[in-house]
Structures are given as C-alpha cells and as structure tokens.
Design a binder for these strands. Structure first.
Length: 481
DNA sequence: ATAGCCTTGAGG
DNA sequence: CCTCAAGGCTAT
C-alpha cells in the first residue's frame, strides 16, 4: 500500500518542477473584506475557472514545492569540510557560503544541497537510508527530541521528522537509483543560491546580520515577494516581540499572512489530475491539499516575530502539536470569507454541498465537516474579523505547550487580541469571552480531527508518505480540557 | 546503522 | 573539459 503511494508520488519528480504563475490579481480585493458577513465573496468566486476542478490540466507538478529550509548564522566557521579539496577550482564565494553553513538538521557542516535542502553528509546519508529502505521509526519521547550533532543518532524518528519539516524530499531520491547527472531539483537550488547571495549582499551592506534566525525557509524571500509583501509602511523587522507594541505584533502577524488565492493555487497543483473515485480518494485529495495549506501556514508563522521567539526545535514541536488546530481554523477562515452556509469549500475551490457530505465522506469525516459548518456559524454570528482569526491561529500555536516561554507568548498574543477587540469593538464587552468560547469548540473539533486522522492512519488509509502523517501526527496531548 | 569518502554522469 | 547532487562503498 505504501509502495503504491510512494510510486505515484515519486513518479512526479522526474517531471519538470512546477512553475508558479503570478496569481496575485484577486487577493488585494479579498483582503479588503474585513467583515465577511456583510461582504460575501461568493459571487466573486463563483465564476472562477478554478472553482471546480473538473477541468484540471495535466501539467507537471511538484506536490512538495514548498520547501522550508534554513539559512543561518552561527559559529561553525572554523570547521573545514574534509572533502573540500577541490576548493581552489570553484568560485570562492560559493564555497565559502557552504563552509559556514551549519546543517539545519543537526548543526554539522553542510556539504551541499541534498534532497531539497542544504545539509551535511550524515543527514544526507541518513535520509537516503530511511527512504531507500523504507524504514519506520517511533519516538519514545513523544516526538520531542532535540537533534544536534551529538544527539542525532539517538532518535531516528525525530531526526527524520526534522529532515522532512525542514524541506527534505523523499521524491528527490531517484526511482531507478541511477547515478550521476543533474538533480531534478536543480532549479530550486539555483533559485535558493541566488536568494542567499542577494541576502548576503543586503546584510553585509547594511548591518551585521546578528539577528538572522536559523529557521528560514528556502526561497523565502522569493516566496514572500511573489506572495504578499508586507505593506510599505511596515518595513521594520523585529528581533523579539518584547520590543514590540501589541499593534506591532498584530501588524506583523497579519501582514505576513499568505493570501488564500496563493494557497489555493498551490493546493490545486498538488491534486491536479486526481479525481474523486471513492471516499478514500477524497481523503487522499483533501490531505494532499492540506499538506500544502500547512506549508503555507508554516511559511506564514516563520515570518512572524512571535514564532521566531522559539528555537528551531521548539518551532517544530509547536507545529507538531498545533497543526490540527491550525487546519481547523484555516478551514473556518475559508468558510467565513469565501464560502456560503450550504457548502464546504475545499482549498482548491471545489465545493461540497452539505447534503452530499455522506456521499463524499466516511462517517467520521462527515461529522467533522458538519462541525466545521456549525462552528463557522458561531464565528459568523460574532462577525469575527480577519485579524481576530489570525490572532487565534497564532495563539493556538503556542497555547498547547505548557512550557513557560510558550505560555508567555500565548498570553501576549491573547493580549493583542484583547487590545484589538477593545479598540474596534468597544461596544461589545463580552466579545473576547465569546471568541474564546468559540475557540474552545474549535479545539474540541481539532481533537476529534486528530483521532480521526489516527484511526485512518491505523487502517492504512493515510500513507506515511504524507508529511502530515509522518511529521505531524503526534499531538497526543492536544487538549487541556 | 552511521558517516565520511568515492564514483557517476547530464548538463553547463 | 568541469560541476555537483545523486547513489555506492566500507570502516567504524
């Protein structure tokens, strides 16, 4: 079963990597709508060519196109890769860049691009083994292990998860095991190299890049300029939320938000050519899209000062714990701003009417879909605005971890939300509590969703080739009652 | 199983 | 030619 899915996904990589067209034409319109209820977007969206995906083109695509990966600061400068003996024959800047990169996974010395990211030899070999031999590992520490050069042998499960989350791609392994030649990911690597070069120029000309954070996605600069640049009046980048006002924080997390249309574009590419054959294929379809949604949320989060408060490992852990919440809130966001009360709107734009839930979904998924519809109406009644929803999503990423640092950030986000409400809804003293009540219901749904996901996985209906499945299926203690 | 070093080979 | 990211080999 796994093999079957492996095959289908692996096959896609030999094709040309996906090219992103600029699809940003609608988003400014969308973002103007702060109040979904009074300004329904349905008309606007109903005539879109992508609203139903019957007419999918069969152009090649890369479902894992989104490649988070780090670039770093750090102090491994003095180490020399032992294999860099051809040093003199290559462009010096390029070489030097590689030398000073710590491996994002373990901190060892980077030897080049491997399976999608810059990494060291050992992590390259590790990832290759895992994928080639189709190994499965389990963590006895609730997927909470920290991976460093010295600890990397201790927990293969956490190491592998970290590889995946940082952007290593199983598909980068060749099907036939052919040696030599160029990587299928060459274009990505070239882009990333260009970005790093640009970034180095910028940081060396302006200031020390002492505030560089190690958890930066590959091509992030590109992504964000392609996507949704922060408004010109908000150019400050903060080191820490400690030095920011609540308003700064709100601006920071809302301006990095990746527009729905661009998430949709990515999700559609990921399911191009797939058809709904049966209920299982719907699960497959939805999960494949959700993977893209999640990547977008990761990109978003990593742009924000609040999330950057955490170490790389804590960021990974935070995502592992909160992804069901994030996905629920994102679906609610989609329902509120882009759908109507009668349909569940998938991120691809496909609509599923409430009456046909039972046709498309198994009973568990049906219950969840219905819950989404119900909880959406609660938020709708409250007339939640975009800022509030985005704050709640950020809040959910911290509140599930009991450690003091996480709780502190969660509290801060909460106070931002409170501020926002007091400023814009001063006539509604109960609004904050009502929102938090709705959030509690959303959390309960996320818990149910997690159980559903586990069950499906147990029955082999969610292949472990999915990142969602492999990396993020570990939020055991999701709920505080 | 790990990780350092070696070999390959398409594309520049 | 050369590069460099894939796969391979092997002592630990």
């Amino acid at each position: 079963m796994d093999d079957f899915f492996n095959e289908t996904r692996v096959n896609q990589i030999d094709q040309e990597p996906m090219k992103r067209e600029n699809t940003n034409t609608h988003e400014p319109l969308i973002q103007q709508y702060q109040y979904p209820i009074s300004q329904p977007m349905d008309d606007f969206f109903d005539n879109r060519h992508w609203q139903n995906d019957e007419n999918m083109q069969d152009s090649p695509q890369d479902p894992n196109n989104q490649t988070p990966s780090p670039s770093t600061s750090h102090d491994f400068f003095d180490q020399q890769p032992s294999f860099a003996n051809n040093e003199l024959s290559s462009p010096p800047s390029n070489r030097r860049e590689k030398q000073r990169e710590p491996c994002p996974v373990c901190g060892d010395v980077v030897s080049g691009y491997h399976y999608g990211i810059l990494s060291c030899e050992s992590c390259k070999g590790f990832f290759k083994r895992i994928v080639q031999l189709n190994k499965k590992y389990y963590c006895s520490n609730n997927d909470q292990c920290t991976i460093t050069k010295t600890t990397r042998k201790k927990c293969s499960s956490c190491r592998y998860n970290k590889c995946i989350l940082l952007g290593m791609k199983r598909e980068a392994l060749r099907i036939g095991g052919n040696r030599g030649g160029r990587s299928a990911l060459k274009e990505e690597y070239d882009k990333d190299r260009a970005n790093r070069k640009k970034k180095r120029l910028v940081s060396s000309s302006s200031d020390q890049n002492h505030n560089e954070h190690p958890f930066q996605p590959l091509e992030m600069k590109n992504e964000m300029t392609d996507f949704d640049p922060k408004p010109a009046n908000f150019l400050t980048s903060f080191d820490s939320i400690l030095g920011m006002t609540n308003l700064d924080i709100i601006k920071d997390i809302t301006s990095s938000w990746i527009p729905e249309e661009q998430v949709a574009e990515r999700a559609r590419k990921a399911v191009e050519g797939m058809i709904f054959v049966n209920k299982y294929s719907v699960i497959d379809h939805v999960i494949r899209m959700d993977e893209q949604v999640l990547f977008s949320k990761v990109l978003w989060a990593k742009q924000t000062a609040a999330f950057r408060e955490l170490s790389t490992d804590d960021q990974v852990k935070a995502l592992c714990k909160s992804w069901p919440h994030v996905m629920c809130l994102d679906q609610i966001y989609r329902q509120l701003w882009f759908s109507d009360e009668k349909h569940l709107l998938l991120v691809s734009g496909r609509k599923i009417s409430q009456e046909s839930f039972s046709t498309y979904f198994d009973p568990g998924a049906q219950k969840m879909a219905e819950e989404i519809m119900r909880i959406t109406t609660i938020y709708k009644k409250l007339r939640i605005d975009r800022t509030e929803l985005i704050c709640l999503m950020m809040f959910s990423m911290f509140i599930l971890d009991e450690r003091p640092q996480h709780q502190l950030i969660a509290e801060r986000i909460k106070s931002c939300l409170l501020d926002h409400i007091q400023t814009h809804f001063s006539d509604q003293p109960a609004r904050f509590h009502e929102l938090m009540n709705a959030f509690r219901e959303t959390s309960e749904l996320a818990r149910i969703g997690t159980e559903w996901f586990r069950e499906k996985k147990l029955y082999g209906m969610i292949p472990s080739t999915y990142i969602l499945s492999e990396v993020l299926d570990n939020g055991n203690s999701l709920m505080q009652a």
